[in-house]
Amino acid sequence: AITFRFEGQEKAKKFYEKLMRQNLEATIHIHGDEVHVTVH
């Protein structure tokens, strides 16, 4: 698994949606202002 870190939720959401379109499995974790997107 690879984890990407984002400042702010907007960028993270766009990235997450892009992964979903590519049929990749990903989970999102929100830590205050920092958002972690883990790709499995």
Rank of each mutant, 00 (worst) to 15 (best):
A1F: 14
A1W: 15
A1C: 15
A1I: 12
A1D: 12
I2R: 07
I2T: 06
I2V: 10
I2G: 03
T3E: 04
T3G: 02
T3K: 06
T3M: 07
T3D: 02
T3Q: 04
T3V: 14
T3W: 08
F4R: 02
F4W: 08
F4V: 04
F4S: 02
R5M: 08
R5D: 02
R5Y: 12
R5T: 10
F6M: 02
F6I: 04
F6Q: 01
F6P: 01
F6V: 02
F6D: 01
E7D: 14
E7Y: 14
G8I: 11
G8K: 09
G8P: 02
G8D: 15
G8T: 15
Q9G: 07
Q9R: 09
E10Y: 08
E10P: 04
E10V: 07
E10W: 08
K11D: 14
K11N: 10
K11I: 11
A12H: 02
A12C: 06
A12G: 04
A12W: 05
A12N: 01
K13E: 10
K13R: 14
K13I: 14
K13P: 00
K14V: 10
K14R: 12
K14M: 12
F15T: 01
F15N: 01
F15G: 00
F15K: 00
Y16Q: 03
Y16W: 10
Y16S: 02
Y16T: 03
Y16R: 03
Y16L: 11
E17H: 08
E17F: 09
E17W: 11
E17D: 11
E17N: 09
E17L: 12
E17K: 09
E17Q: 11
K18R: 11
K18Y: 15
K18A: 13
K18T: 10
K18D: 08
K18N: 09
K18W: 15
K18S: 12
L19Y: 03
L19T: 02
L19W: 03
L19E: 01
L19R: 01
M20C: 05
M20E: 03
M20K: 11
R21Y: 06
Q22F: 13
Q22P: 01
Q22Y: 14
Q22C: 13
Q22T: 05
Q22H: 10
Q22L: 15
Q22N: 09
N23M: 07
N23I: 04
N23T: 04
L24W: 10
L24R: 08
L24T: 05
L24S: 03
L24Q: 05
L24I: 15
E25M: 14
E25F: 15
E25S: 14
A26F: 14
A26P: 04
A26L: 08
T27W: 10
T27K: 05
T27A: 05
T27S: 10
T27Q: 06
T27I: 07
T27C: 06
T27Y: 13
I28G: 01
I28A: 02
I28D: 00
H29W: 13
H29Y: 13
H29Q: 10
H29G: 04
H29C: 10
H29E: 13
I30W: 12
I30F: 11
I30R: 07
I30E: 05
I30A: 07
I30L: 11
I30N: 05
H31S: 10
H31L: 11
H31V: 14
H31Y: 13
H31Q: 11
G32E: 06
G32A: 07
G32P: 04
G32M: 06
G32K: 06
G32R: 06
D33V: 09
E34W: 12
E34S: 08
E34M: 10
E34K: 07
V35G: 02
V35E: 01
V35R: 00
V35L: 04
H36E: 05
H36C: 08
H36R: 08
H36M: 09
H36Y: 15
H36Q: 05
V37W: 02
V37E: 00
V37S: 00
T38Y: 10
T38C: 04
T38E: 05
T38R: 07
T38V: 13
T38K: 08
V39H: 03
V39Q: 03
V39L: 13
V39K: 03
H40K: 11
H40A: 08
H40M: 12
H40W: 15
H40V: 09
H40L: 12
